[in-house]
Amino acid sequence: MEAILFYILAALIIIFAVASVTSRKILRAVIYLLFVLISIAGLYFLINYNLLAAIQLTVYAGGVIVLFIFSVLLVHHVELELEKTPLKRKIIAGILSLLGLGITLWSIFTYTFKTATTTYSSIEVRDIGLKLLSYGDGGYILPFEVISVLLVAVMIGAIIVAKGEKLKEN
């Protein structure tokens, strides 16, 4: 049952990802990306990482995709078709990507992973929260704080960059 579910999700992910990078309508590309993200959230559910799935849905599907859609609407006509990529470029990029994929897969398949045999229980949100705020061994309080500072900086930076000329005029 779970295996079948995984295969379905994997197929969805790959199909929509390909659609997302090839679609010539920009808004559709964004929506395909949304589907990919939702499918990935499905995978998180499948392995019982509920918190991650929730974050994936809220931040990505809820936040980032909306941001994309707004920006697309700001700078494009919805019906505008994107320019065609030159074929030569497509071929080179395709070959390069396939080569990279081949190398990666080859190296993955020649390596023997020591899969854990212990049964695992679904992780609790509480555990993640404690880990994030712990300053003891293996605690993540410092990166957590750094990320929060980064987010503030990005927020201010984004505002200033987007406002651009107007700030100067004032």
Binding site: S20, R89, I92, G94, L96, S97, T104
Partner: peptide, 24 residues
């Protein structure tokens, strides 16, 4: 998924769609 994203990054002609590939 990673290499699809990379392919998109290489070939897309619009900055926003390039950004989509990065998300992938």
């Amino acid at each position: 998924l990673f290499f699809i994203g990379l392919y998109g990054f290489f070939t897309r002609e619009n900055l926003i769609t390039v950004l989509l590939s990065i998300e992938l």
